[in-house]
C-alpha cells in the first residue's frame, strides 16, 4: 500500500530530518510510527501526501507521489491532523464531512448517504448539525475522523490521534481505530494506544529507522525505547507505588 524507497528530506540544507529511509506497509496493516519529538514522524506523513517534496521515491498503491498523481493519492489516503481545529474549517460537522466527497465529484445525495453511514458507524448522529466551534475537544476529534472516513480512503493516517483527550474519548478513538479495516499508519507518543491498536511499530530516531517489527516486541524492549528517548508503555511498567 505504501512504500518509501531511500527517502531523505531536510527543511534546512545540511540538517536532514529524514535520512535515506526505506520501509513498506502492506494493505490492511496497522502500523504505529513512534519516536521522540523531531524524529520525523509528521514529516513522513506530509511527504506521502505530497505536502512536502521528497528526495527518493514514495509509492502509494504502486503510484509514485508526483504532482500528477496527487489527486488520486489524496483520495486513497485520509489524513487526520493533530489539531482538529485546523481540520474542521467549515461551520458545521455535516458541511465539513461533505466537503471531501463533493470535491471528488459525488452528488449531494451520494455525499449525504456517506455522511449518514459514517456518522451511524461512529455513533455520532447527534453531531451532524452541530457547530464545529461549539463541540468539545473529544467530539471534535471524532468528527475530524468522520470527515476523513466520509472520503472512504484506503489508508488512514493519523497524527497524534489521542493527544489532549480524556480517558473516555481516548478509548473511543482507540475503538474506532480498531474497528476499521483500512490500512492505518498512526504516529503517536501514546505508546499504550499504539500497543492497543497496532500490530507493527516503526521506531524512528533522528530521521532513521531504529527498529521495525512486531509492536509488542518493540514496546516491551525497555533498553531500546530508552536509548531512543522513549519509555515503556504505562501498562507494561507495573505500578510499584511512589
Amino acid at each position: 500500500m505504501l512504500e518509501f524507497r531511500n527517502v531523505s528530506f531536510s527543511y534546512e540544507p545540511g540538517t536532514p530530518v529524514l535520512d535515506n529511509l526505506s520501509f513498506h506497509i502492506r494493505k490492511g496493516e496497522t502500523v504505529g510510527l513512534i519516536g521522540a519529538n523531531g524524529a520525523g514522524k509528521s514529516t513522513i506523513m506530509k511527504l506521502m501526501l505530497g505536502l512536502l517534496p521528497a528526495q527518493g521515491e514514495i509509492l502509494v498503491d504502486g503510484m509514485p507521489v508526483t504532482k500528477q498523481n496527487l489527486s488520486v493519492i489524496r483520495q486513497k489516503i485520509g489524513f487526520v491532523l493533530q489539531d482538529s481545529d485546523n481540520q474542521m474549517f467549515m461551520p458545521t460537522v455535516y458541511e465539513d464531512m461533505i466537503f471531501g466527497p463533493r470535491n471528488y465529484g459525488l452528488t449531494r445525495e451520494e455525499a449525504d448517504a456517506r455522511v449518514e453511514r459514517v456518522l451511524k458507524e461512529l455513533g455520532l448522529e447527534s453531531l451532524k448539525h452541530r457547530h464545529n466551534h461549539k463541540i468539545s475537544g473529544g467530539e471534535k476529534r471524532m468528527a475530524a475522523i468522520a470527515t476523513i472516513l466520509a472520503m472512504e480512503p484506503e489508508m488512514i493516517v493519523m497524527d497524534e490521534p489521542s493527544t489532549a483527550l480524556d480517558p473516555v474519548n481516548r478509548r473511543r478513538v482507540i475503538s474506532t481505530i480498531n474497528s476499521r479495516k483500512e490500512t492505518k499508519l498512526i504516529a503517536s507518543h501514546d505508546l499504550d494506544m499504539i500497543l492497543d491498536t497496532c500490530q507493527r511499530v516503526i521506531l524512528l530516531n533522528h530521521g532513521r529507522i531504529v527498529a521495525d517489527g512486531e509492536a509488542e516486541t518493540i514496546l516491551r524492549d525497555r533498553a531500546l525505547l530508552e536509548a531512543n528517548r522513549m519509555e515503556l508503555p504505562f501498562c507494561l511498567q507495573g505500578w510499584k507505588g511512589r
Partner: peptide
C-alpha cells in the same frame, strides 16, 4: 503556520480552488 495547516487540510480533501462542493 495555522493558515498552512488549514490549506493543507483543504487540499487533502480534494480542494483545487473550485467550489464543487457548493453545487
Amino acid at each position: 503556520d495555522r493558515a498552512e495547516e488549514l490549506y493543507s487540510s483543504m487540499l487533502l480533501r480534494g480542494f483545487r480552488g473550485e467550489f464543487y462542493y457548493v453545487g
